[in-house]
Design a protein around this nucleic acid. Structure first.
Lengths: 353, 353
DNA sequence: CTGAAAGCGCTTACAG
DNA sequence: CTGAAAGCGCTTACAG
């Protein structure tokens, strides 16, 4: 049987409370006794029992704050939420209470305020979709420095320190798009890329991964332009039409997950889907339909539901399992979906991608 | 806060032991009192606390038997094992003890003996990769009938009753292969299929899914032959060579996961990979290398590690969470891997696929 | 600096 | 048929 606090206490000839104090460096203990206890625990390969630790936690809960800034109407957000909720439901039996806070899209100062409010409320850990802004970066660096566990969800910041990143390997997902285009156009082609906001660091990485891979391995495919799609539906529509006019030779198109509704509408209206081979990122009602209607050939997804779930489970691993080797980059696997995959997808409603 | 046994006991005006007896239909209780308690629990949406239930289980463990028949040298088996071990490690804190039993490949009578031994030893549940044989089917039907939870792992039997199947949606994975060939050969082509043992029901389903999808949606792709590969390396090699000779017009090839070493060697030796586009099932060291060397274009995997893990977690959900709606078919997602995905795969050693 | 006791929520063997 | 008590492994407030 696995070692317990009781067994360690017996071997060390001390009480169970003393063992606990030693193993968690709580002080108020003779350093020599503490070392002796730690050695015994190490030799027995002691790991705390998750059920016991969780049950005990019910007396004094651990409070985790989730801070999101993505739009509630967004299918991607909804999938993240499904995963978060599943995780929250699972960890609540272990005395881990998770509270979700929302802020406006790309409003860094509002996000900073929310962070500070959570800290003031003595949060035990933060799961955040961070906004790429210096005020956020420096605050997160401070908090990480002070020992507060911060988990980045779905987005990462450069030159910032954190416990773990749970999300897509954006660079790899760009490379996979490159590989997929090579399957579709082994003889080469002209690729027009539409990209979501480059304010998000991940999207930069993804475009880089795509471009570099194409240059190195599939030079027959030429990136004619990368068009950043921001703004409302109308703006996206017009930007798309203009880009298609500028690049009439494009026979390959890459669509972003976000804004794909107006983007794909413009592509259809211009009739470009008849001649171009199109792939997309992410999964939404729009993408579902476009796959079904044979407008697009495939989509590359990043399993947002699993991301939300995994972020919460990371806190469980930290606080309940006392895992010491939490992955700094916990990349959630990228999936390629074809029309045939649609069967396994739940048809989503009320999404506004 | 969530309802507890204590709260229900207070409301019902009985002791906590009585509540437990009522909720678990243990008898020795006034039916009227039992119904009253059940109603209160239902109204409060009572769910047992997993940590408390698990901790209590340590006094009287739940014993789960895993019965495998796949070869230990097989990469697929090794991946299944990784997942099983991860699951086993996780559930042991909840008093769930999982023991793994091995039997020889396709030896149904040995498997039956092992099943009976586990039952004689009062197992609380069985996770099994079942062999397709009447003696296994009828025994499993009996055991399911008697209330023993049986989880099928990675393979399913027809006309057999079980709690849950955890594994690939074989029909869908055949359809996905069809969709992938359509991407590679939109103008159509001649497809030569190599299939692993058709003794395994899943492989039949997979071939059916492939064939039906091609007929209905991509009739330009013609299946010239489905060749079952059984026997040792030499036999597989020779069967492959002969099949390639018989079907010299084949410009598309589908390789099985198992036996892919000799199969791919024969294809390379015949130089067929120069003209044919090849995809495979599953992931192994051989497949890894074939992707790297551009011999094959893509592989379709069924995440065996996640299968093993999920099978164990199913028992956790049943015994600890008391989940009532355990999925009868718990399909693990199918993934398409391109050369670009190799980065995220751990290079495996000592495999003999 | 250390120990004894209580309690997290559940189940069971025992007493009545 | 029902209740009181003990215990699963852990942590903490309190007493010394």
């Amino acid at each position: 049987m696995a070692a317990t606090i009781r067994k360690i206490a017996e071997i060390a000839g001390v009480s169970r409370g003393t063992v606990d104090r030693a193993l968690h460096n709580k002080g108020r203990i003779d350093p020599e006794v503490a070392n002796k206890i730690k050695k015994i625990a190490y030799d027995l390969n002691y790991k705390p029992n998750a059920a016991a630790k969780g049950l005990n936690n019910k007396k004094d809960t651990i409070n985790i704050s989730v801070i999101l800034h993505i739009s509630k109407l967004n299918y991607f957000f909804q999938d993240i939420m499904l995963g978060l909720e599943k995780g929250i439901e699972e960890v609540k039996d272990y005395g881990i209470i998770v509270k979700i806070h929302y802020c406006n899209d790309f409003d860094a100062h509002e996000q900073l305020e929310i962070i500070n409010k959570c800290v003031a409320d003595k949060t035990n850990g933060i799961i955040i979709v961070p906004i790429n802004h210096d005020c956020i970066k420096s605050r997160i660096n401070e908090l990480t420095e002070s020992g507060l566990p911060i988990v980045f969800l779905t987005n990462i910041l450069d030159s910032t320190n954190y416990l773990s990143y749970v999300g897509c390997d954006y660079n790899l997902s760009g490379e996979i798009a490159a590989g997929l285009f090579n399957l579709l156009a082994p003889e080469g082609g002209h690729l027009l890329c539409f990209s979501p906001s480059l304010q998000m660091y991940g999207h930069l990485l993804r475009n880089n991964g795509l471009r570099t891979k194409l240059q190195n391995d599939y030079p027959g495919i030429d990136v004619v332009e990368i068009v950043e799609l921001t703004g409302d539906d109308k703006e996206v529509y017009e930007k798309t039409i203009k880009a298609l006019e500028r690049n009439s030779e494009a026979d390959l198109i890459l669509c972003p997950g976000v804004s794909s509704k107006s983007n794909l509408k413009a592509i259809s209206d211009r009739n470009s889907c008849n001649k171009a081979k199109i792939i997309a990122y992410d999964y939404s009602a729009t993408i579902h339909k476009a796959l079904e209607d044979k407008i697009i050939t495939a989509t590359i997804t990043q399993q947002p539901e699993l991301q939300g779930y995994t972020a919460v489970k990371t806190m469980f691993e930290l606080f309940i399992l006392e895992k010491r080797d939490i992955k700094r980059n916990n990349y959630i696997k990228t999936r390629i979906l074809l029309r045939e995959h649609l069967k396994e997808c739940i048809q989503r409603k009320n999404t506004n991608p």
